[in-house]
Design a protein around this nucleic acid. Structure first.
Lengths: 208, 208
DNA sequence: CCTTGTGAAAACTTTCACAGCT
DNA sequence: AGCTGTGAAAGTTTTCACAAGG
């Protein structure tokens, strides 16, 4: 594992993993680059290149071993153990994320939720108690949590992220519609719903 | 408007728009590629290239006219008029999307919501009545809606998208964790939360 | 002197095409 | 015969670097 993996390849890895899991459930042991490419909507050449870059797991004339590849990707992505997440901002989106079942299925679990709205503190959503943001530092340190989700308004997002990072968070998933600046060594990924709609709008108005 | 805009540039346009709006609110009339680049976390060369590709809106020695550029991008992205959206799947995520205020602020509005769960049909979320999915065809045609959001489980997503498109939807925002296949002329964008977490996981485990 | 416009270089990603195993 | 591995070509995006204009 040394030659650097291209970012686009990395982004596809989760999808490979998901489809490999499905193929496994269906009882398939071997899969070809062609079959994978059809499922994922890629070219077969790209699938081969991606898997080749990861180390080359196939057998010529045969294909890829589904379980072997699945296990490799799972470990490679760091998904062998359950990973805890804190969530800050328990408005509509935050609440939905707390209730979202998809995370647990993939070995991520939101264990703590914070807000600074007195009306929300103390409420329980999906079994998780909403705590005062002031408790954040204690909880992050105590449980050595490194993942944080930001579902606050844009105006407070950067400040909350700065605090999180001070307390030990290493990776942030941001839902606030703003560019968050973080220092070296911290990873951040942003999901911006209106940006997606605007991109669709462009294509609709300019004919794909 | 003919030379094809690179996809990555297109993706950045929403962010330019958002920051231009903020600069406008602050009363700034002129902005340099440098200032924009800092706000968006890009290089100044990239900002200049992006804006140059769009047509070149700057004045040498001066910068870019904030209002002019904002208006251009707004129109270019097709955001001059309010655009209606239907939402299918009113589970946790769907409900949160119905309540999400961010859409309206950016000229998108969810006007109809559908589900096929009897327990949800007839309920009202954020002023929108959840209708039986059977009504989808009628509503899409009647109101000539072209945007659809999918917040159903993965297993039914492709089927729902197929129906939507049959009825007239041209652009789909997909939240189901599955690759949706659509025909030429239909635009689709997917938001996949666990994929984002897995990408973070990789970086955490491999040191940025 | 400041900042954009822009051709050209550099960097990166995808695709081609076929050699090489099974 | 079938399918991966892989160097090389093609295609795409970013960055450089400086000319041009206010």
């Amino acid at each position: 594992m040394k030659s650097t993996i291209p970012e686009p390849t990395l982004r596809r890895l989760s999808y490979y993993l998901r489809y490999l899991e499905r193929f496994k459930e269906k009882g398939l042991n071997i899969i070809s680059s062609k079959e994978l490419s059809i499922a994922l909507g890629l070219s077969d050449a790209q699938v081969r290149r991606d898997l080749f870059t990861l180390g080359g797991f196939g057998k010529r004339g045969v294909g890829y071993d589904v379980s072997k590849l699945f296990n490799f990707l799972n470990t490679f992505l760091g998904l062998d153990n359950l990973q805890s997440i804190i969530l800050v901002g328990c408005g509509n989106l935050g609440k939905a994320l707390l209730q979202y079942k998809g995370f647990k299925k993939r070995k991520f679990i939101i264990t703590h939720a914070f807000d600074n709205d007195k009306r929300l503190i103390g409420k329980k959503i999906a079994g998780i108690n909403i705590q005062d943001s002031k408790e954040m530092q204690r909880e992050i340190r105590k449980h050595k949590i490194i993942y944080g989700i930001i579902a606050t308004p844009a105006s407070s997002a950067q400040g909350v992220v700065n605090s999180m990072i001070d307390y030990g968070i290493k990776a942030v998933l941001n839902f606030a519609p703003i560019k968050i600046h973080v220092s070296q060594g911290i990873v951040i990924s942003s999901v911006d719903l209106t940006t997606e709609l605007e991109w669709l709008s462009f294509h609709v108005h300019h004919g794909t």
